[in-house]
């Protein structure tokens, strides 16, 4: 399972790195934002008001956003742990951090719960400012770690944004998926759909020994051992809990309850 997911992650990460190198050498005018589904969200307002795209957004961003919506309805936020190149980098940083420090660091539960709502603030700000103050320009991308990392400080990136991106990405060494958990606006977009995602982890209470290994390994701090079915909005179907579970059949994927 872990191998399969890593292969898929490497395909997408390799693709975006190849694109970055081609972009830096002038072989293509396209950048990672050409293929970013969040662009589809940002395009809604200019499309509705002016019947035109803004900035570098194109039909591809909109099509990828529609595909992402369908994927989330079908498989929860599996995009985050299987596709997103930034998610892959943050996951590897998290693993490196655990090896270096011997543990993961977590914010206190109350602070964690409050801070998770920051994603919605970032989402509202990114869309609201794009539609108003930035006059349709994608001002948010200058602060987006995905854009800054995979264009290697591309167009519109200021020195301040680079430092901010380094901090936000580097934070994953200590707190698992810091950017994804607290700030990612694309993750916030998927949240309402993810709760009803068809493919989810189900716990077989008759087999489960309540050892808590699943709770311990879950990078998103979901109490897997305390639920019959994982409906949490932030579950990315990374399946780390299933891999880690010592009891065969205690945790398994269910597809719309089957």
């Amino acid at each position: 399972m872990r191998v399969l997911r890593t292969v898929v992650q490497l395909v997408f990460l390799g693709g975006v790195i190849a694109l970055m190198i081609r972009g830096l050498t002038g072989a293509t005018p396209n950048t990672c934002e050409t293929y970013c589904p969040f662009g589809g969200m940002a395009a809604i307002f200019p499309l509705a008001k002016y019947k035109m795209y803004t900035c570098r957004l194109t039909e591809l961003n909109v099509s990828l956003m529609v595909s992402l919506v369908v994927l989330t309805i079908a498989t929860k936020k599996s995009f985050c742990s299987w596709v997103c190149p930034l998610g892959t980098v943050l996951e590897w940083l998290h693993r490196a951090g655990r090896k270096i420090f011997g543990r993961s660091f977590h914010l206190p539960t109350t602070a964690d719960r409050w801070l998770m709502n920051l994603r919605y603030v970032v989402l509202a700000a990114a869309l609201g400012l794009t539609w108003t103050i930035w006059g349709g320009d994608l001002g948010f991308r200058a602060y987006d770690p995905f854009y800054i990392l995979f264009t290697w400080g591309g167009h519109g990136t200021a020195a301040f944004s680079v430092y901010l991106a380094i901090v936000l990405i580097g934070a994953a060494l200590f707190v698992p998926f810091f950017w994804c958990r607290y700030l990612c606006p694309l993750g916030a977009t998927m949240d309402p759909l993810s709760r009803y995602g068809g493919l989810r982890i189900r716990r077989n209470a008759g087999v489960c020994t309540d050892c808590g290994a699943c709770d311990e390994i879950c990078p998103h701090r979901i109490p897997v051992s305390q639920v019959a079915e994982v409906t949490a909005r932030n579950c990315t179907n990374c399946l780390e809990c299933v891999v880690e579970c010592p009891e065969k059949g205690a945790l398994e994927l269910s597809c719309y309850g089957k």
């Binding site: 898929v8 529609v66 179907n237």
Partner: peptide
């Protein structure tokens, strides 16, 4: 755990569909 294969298959199909449908509509910049 055969159902795990659903995820990469869904990702592959939806990615192909996204790229295949971009030519079905054209909106100007």
């Amino acid at each position: 755990m055969k159902k795990v294969i659903i995820i990469p298959i869904a990702i592959a199909i939806l990615t192909v569909v996204a790229f295949a449908t971009v030519n079905t509509y054209r909106v100007p910049t």
